[in-house]
Design a protein around this nucleic acid. Structure first.
Lengths: 240, 240
DNA sequence: ACACCGACCATTGTATACAGGAAGGAGAGC
DNA sequence: GCTCTCCTTCCTGTATACAATGGTCGGTGT
């Protein structure tokens, strides 16, 4: 069946078992690019291009793309390839409702378990976030905000819920990219610092209430208009 | 059961178009087999064997296996292949804590939104579950129990959280397989019927409390022993 | 006889080759 | 001049071939 006797085409890849780590690194690269809005919602992700950029074959790229699709960061349309997910208004609402329920629900346990190291790490993230915002680097700030919320969730000790929160934060970044006003993106105020204060003092209930207000504030800052591009409802348009 | 459709092995098996649906069907087949405990935790899943059974090539099987790994139904060890996940005691606790938080939190909204059709569908599932339990078909009963909880979550209207609940229920089936006592598996009593009653009467708070007790009862029925097979901690063993 | 070492086999990981469908462009007809 | 259709071209979906690795079994030496 092999018509052509292909020479072992340059196994420049086959160093050793770094394959898994390489894939992980590529996954993070693409994730970060999406979360930092360097890849905007709707952007198409061609397999060939990504394969060439990262120096692997399409096989590995496909695997990563599928994982990203499961995480709902990219959308995989059957014969059209992959593109960065453009969240709908409904999805945005679901995501923020879910964050309300889970992140707020986690706060008491977090307040109970938080350690000095955790506090330091969180303060570091919050500080860098403020600096990024001050410097106008919204990409970095958004990524750090997601990192803050994700890290917070992991302190609860429940890896399953923390993973879920992390994914919700990633999706939130996407939502900010679509529905956010360029003006005051992310968590500008001292919210994160204040939250750390409540947690440090072990005030779980207050932290919970504060987180609720915090998330509501973010959601309220979005301009969620229906965005009727995808499937323009001709009936509604012409029936009036 | 009859998913083994021996194809004529012609070269036309890649008749695309049905590819996506085929993959979906295979995914469901394997998922069901795991949830119904026909594939027990720890069972190895060789790619060749699955490829032959379902009449597709290893490429498609790999894709499905990776998706199952993302859903944490199978574990993918780097050079050793795939096997049905054997949940640890910690994971079991996390899963049930997560269900406590999310499923209970969803109940008020479910009580608000539930429709007559929903009630009928839920009653049907609960009835079939009881019948299966009476007939001693624990596999079917476990699957129906997961279906009940999943369906319930979808009524809330929050697709994101419902999806998460669905996945938690699948993982719960796995946990039951490892830590459950053969005696009283699943939700034996009239719990599901009672819950439907509360929801029908719009008593969200009561439904929430009842769901909490229900989940606690299931968790309490497990015998969670540490199961130190996976990575026997030699340091701890020999340091004494 | 037991233990260690080497080779083989089984199974996964990766790349490439091939086929089929969808989007865009060009040509022809009205 | 505009539009419709066909063709080309790119891109994804799938299978297969090849490389690498870990486990296992058998042989040999002490």
């Amino acid at each position: 069946m092999n018509q052509v006797e292909r020479k072992p085409a340059g196994p420049r890849r086959g160093k050793n078992g770094d394959g898994a780590e390489r894939h992980e690194a590529i996954h993070r690269s693409i994730s970060d690019a999406i979360i930092e809005h360097r890849l905007k919602p709707g952007a198409r992700l061609r397999e060939d291009a990504l394969a060439e950029v990262f120096g692997v074959s399409r096989t590995g790229i496909r695997k990563i793309l599928q994982r990203l699709a499961l995480e709902q960061l990219v959308t995989l349309t059957p014969r059209r390839g992959a593109s960065v997910t453009r969240p709908t208004a409904d999805e945005a609402k679901d995501v923020f409702d879910a964050r309300q329920m889970i992140e707020c629900g986690l706060m008491p346990e977090v307040a109970r378990r938080i350690s000095a190291d955790d506090l330091e790490a969180l303060r570091d993230i919050a500080r860098r976030e403020r600096e990024a915002l001050k410097a106008g680097e919204q990409s970095v700030a958004i990524k750090l905000s997601a990192a803050f919320h994700g890290r917070l969730a992991y302190i609860s000790g429940n890896a399953t819920l923390a993973e879920f929160v992390e994914r919700l934060c990633f999706r939130s970044s996407l939502i900010l990219a679509v529905y956010g006003n360029a003006g005051h993106l992310g968590c500008e105020s001292h919210d994160h610092e204040d939250l750390i204060g409540y947690l440090e003092r072990g005030e779980g209930e207050r932290a919970q209430a504060f987180m609720s207000r915090h998330l509501k504030a973010i959601e309220a800052s979005l301009s969620i208009h229906a965005e009727e591009d995808e499937a323009p409802d001709l009936f509604e348009i012409f029936s009036g």
